[in-house]
Simulated assay, not measured.
Amino acid sequence: MAPGLLAAAAVLAAVAASLAAHVALNCPVQPVPSHRPPPTPPPNNLLQRLEKLGEGALDAPEDVYVDAAAGGALYTATRDGWLQRMMHPNNGSWERWRFVGGTGLLGVAPSADGTMLVCDADKGLLRVGDEGVTLLASEVEGSPIRFADAAIEASDGTVYFSDASTRFGFDRWFHDFLEFSSTGRLLRYDPRSGETSVVLDRLGFANGVALPRDEAFVVVCETMRCIKVWLKGDKAGEAETFVDLPGWPDNIRLGSDGHFWIAVLQLRSPWLDFITRWTFTKRVVASFPALSEWSKGAAKGAMVAQVSEDGTILRVLDDSQGKVINFVTSVTEFNGDIFLGSLATNFVGKLSLARVAQKQGAVSS
């Protein structure tokens, strides 16, 4: 072999050895092979028609709650530790309503006593009201709640909420995506006893939680699908697939017509598809923080799905390239409009459903 080729081979071997050593010493994940999501339906870009509420006033509003009793007042939590409120979505502005603190405020949901349930990814399940902030649950059965994500209160006061991952916190969610481990949990908080218990574990990034009108079951979203756990009837306690989705489902909310609206993250790109194909490439990316951050930003697009109570996908709305809104994490319907939260925007999106044709975006489950 020519001396030049020998030198090049020696350099490549040294680089490979250095890379292997770096990964061995610094890789924070223990990855398993990822599953491929169902095919994405043809884009319709109907989300590009939305209105931006309070653009520039919000820092990554992950979830949105609409108070129907207050005429449609909007609530959201932002990265500066505030719960924010817009009393009049048609002509109002955002106001700082309650200060909670921290950067990990995620799901917001109403409680029958007039307070607000808030999932603080770092602290756990909180109750926020006029008298301040109360920590309801920070551990379950001796295990810390590492990533409280979304909550819903049943008519008897029981709170169902998700712990997305027992491995990684909110600031390291991408590591959980790369690792593809199933350590998330659906939890139950009993306000009478003050105790928290595990309803379902081994979930792949447990996320949104919702109840149908009759509360016969509870739905929890995880990687590429949502699962329902029966609460009543002969199947009480049993879990089964509710719906498979073309992406990674995030928050889910019950609509006024009894159907559910689900935010579906589009964590797809040629680069992400490449690195998630093998466990070694996952380990390499996770071992370099700058590469991990760049990889997170490689995915573009937004999607929401309307799903019937029996798990049939009724329609899908999207912004396929994320030109107007990207990384939608929640969708809430009220009075013919949907309101969109996102960790990648500085506004809440509002879209009139009257502006989009029912047949557009329809897919079969």
Rank of each mutant, 00 (worst) to 15 (best):
M1W: 06
L6Y: 04
A8L: 14
A9M: 11
A16G: 13
A16D: 11
S18W: 12
L19I: 14
H22L: 12
V23E: 09
V23L: 05
A24F: 10
P28A: 08
P31R: 07
V32N: 02
P39D: 10
P41F: 03
P42K: 11
P43H: 13
N44A: 14
Q48Y: 01
Q48E: 14
E55Q: 14
E55N: 11
L58E: 07
A60N: 13
V64R: 01
A68S: 14
A68F: 05
A69F: 01
A69H: 07
G71T: 10
A73H: 09
A77R: 01
R85C: 12
R85W: 03
P89Y: 07
S93Y: 07
R98S: 07
F99H: 15
F99Q: 13
G102T: 11
S111C: 10
V118W: 04
C119W: 04
A121Y: 06
A121L: 03
L125W: 06
G129E: 08
V140I: 06
R146E: 01
A148P: 02
A151P: 03
I152L: 01
A154T: 02
A154P: 00
F161R: 04
F168H: 15
F168T: 03
F168I: 03
D171C: 03
F177L: 12
F177N: 01
S181W: 01
T183L: 02
Y189D: 04
S193C: 06
G194M: 09
E195L: 15
E195K: 15
S197T: 15
F205L: 15
G208Y: 01
V209A: 05
V218N: 00
C221G: 04
M224W: 01
R225M: 12
I227A: 02
V229Q: 05
K235G: 01
E238S: 12
E240G: 08
L245P: 00
D250N: 15
D250V: 02
I252E: 00
R253E: 10
D257E: 13
S269V: 06
P270K: 10
P270H: 09
P270R: 10
W271C: 05
R283P: 00
S287P: 04
L291S: 12
A298D: 10
K300R: 14
G311P: 02
V316T: 10
D319V: 07
V324Y: 03
N326L: 05
T329Q: 08
S330W: 00
E333L: 05
N335A: 15
D337W: 09
L340C: 07
G341E: 07
A344T: 06
T345M: 11
F347R: 01
